[in-house]
Design a protein around this nucleic acid. Structure first.
Lengths: 255, 255
DNA sequence: AAGTGGTCTAGACCACCTG
DNA sequence: AGGTGGTCTAGACCACTTA
């Protein structure tokens, strides 16, 4: 297909009209992303091999490879030599709590326990509505939960989920699930969090929060507001966390 | 050089004995990194073209390209189509304050003013010594400064610099310099910060800090401890910042 | 042995920048 | 026009995994 493709990349047959005039590998990347979004392959599954994809898209293996490279560095895919390329998942034992940057000061590290405090369906408050880009009147699922380290509460999370995408989410379902919440979201609702933005500030504990975190009122807490996105940069979760940083810290790497 | 290289990559002539048995492009990458560290090309300068490097190292352009790709994604190099590949610098107008993640809540954004409060040379305190991997008794330069947004103090930084690397750093030199501190470090001392780790917690303002930041004692502040590294993962700067997050927040992106 | 991703090459052409 | 990085191809071989 060389000459045709070079003259007018992605021109006539074989491929749907993506924006075009993008580099070939970008178009392949977009097509792969679309397949991921459409659920053609599920979280944790293998995707077709590079040569197979090259044949499907009628391009060389190197071009497919470059597309997959980018998706891998964006953590949408995971390469495993000799085995294949897999759809990234939050369920991986090793990479659990991918989005939680809180670390114990002395790296005893023993994982955290969860305690669900509240779970209800409701009309979205105005600010949540705006953050999740929802239409006025639409429903959200509201959660409140604690994370505990060695029995002591460290994180208080208030969570709002796009209602339409999380139909049937209940306290029972959450309680009966081992492993990270984002993993449940993948398997039960087919919603995969691929990116998030956090805004962090320092605040004083109010009465409620102080009681739940077992600290005096006015204790300085880390306020972490997280907006999480699925495919297509669609925001689907807003989370307001209060972290007790007496024996933990939020770690970050700059480069 | 094809057959020889394939049989025993980086074998005899032309190339110093790097670890070897690493992929060729990783060896090239290491060599480029060494040249950067040695100061063969300075911050902001062009490095030789891909074809030239390919000739020097006796490998194909594609291999050099892959090495440069990695260095570019690690922000050590910057590619500019048609012009060449450049050594990354903190002086770039656009990418100024690369390591400062503080953002105004309403994106008025006007850059921040600096005010140097203190600058002295001293024996390193124990914790600073340990963080900078220095020998007991070695000297550090200690700085204290404020960052102000629209005239109001927002950040109070205490900074310790590896003394041996920053000989001759003085209050005058700092005061008379426009542009980010890290840029001065590059041009005056040849020390380039390429990576940093931050530990963030929430603390209450003490008496001194409250006065300097013009907030009541006990105000919740963001404590940001940053350890910055040059080439070879050598730590050269420790920084303890206190951020007033009343009208600013620390932003972070997770992926 | 066969299949997968990973490395390396050589050569073509494109897009951008500078003299 | 000539140089630079950017894209794409085709084919060879390596390293790892599974059966």
């Amino acid at each position: 297909m060389s000459e045709a493709a070079l003259a007018a990349p992605m021109s006539s047959s074989a491929l749907p009209a993506t924006p075009s005039f993008l580099p070939l590998y970008q178009q392949i990347k977009a097509l792969l992303m679309r397949s991921l979004q459409a659920g053609e392959w599920r979280a944790g599954e293998v995707i077709p091999s590079e040569v197979e994809l090259a044949a499907r898209f009628k391009v060389s293996q190197g071009t497919v490879r470059k597309a997959i490279d980018e998706l891998a560095t964006e953590n949408l895919l995971v390469r495993r030599q000799g085995k294949g390329t897999f759809v990234a998942t939050h369920a991986e034992e090793k990479i659990q709590y991918r989005f939680l940057r809180l670390t114990p000061d002395d790296a005893t590290s023993a994982g955290m326990q969860r305690r669900l405090l509240d779970c209800r369906r409701m009309r979205a408050p105005a600010d949540v509505l705006r953050a999740l880009e929802m239409k006025s009147g639409e429903a959200v699922v509201e959660l409140r939960r604690l994370l505990l380290a060695e029995g002591r509460p460290v994180v208080l999370d208030d969570i709002w989920l796009h209602g339409a995408l999380f139909k049937g989410l209940s306290a029972e379902k959450l309680a009966g699930y081992r492993g990270p919440m984002y993993s449940l979201f993948e398997t039960e609702f087919g919603v995969r969090m691929i990116r998030a933005e956090e805004k962090i500030r320092s605040v004083a504990a109010g009465a409620d929060e102080a009681a739940l975190l077992a600290v005096p009122v006015g204790t300085p807490l880390l306020s972490v507001e997280r907006l999480s996105f699925t495919y297509g940069d669609k925001p689907v979760e807003l989370r307001r966390g209060l972290y007790n940083t007496a024996h933990h810290h939020y770690r970050n790497v700059l480069s």
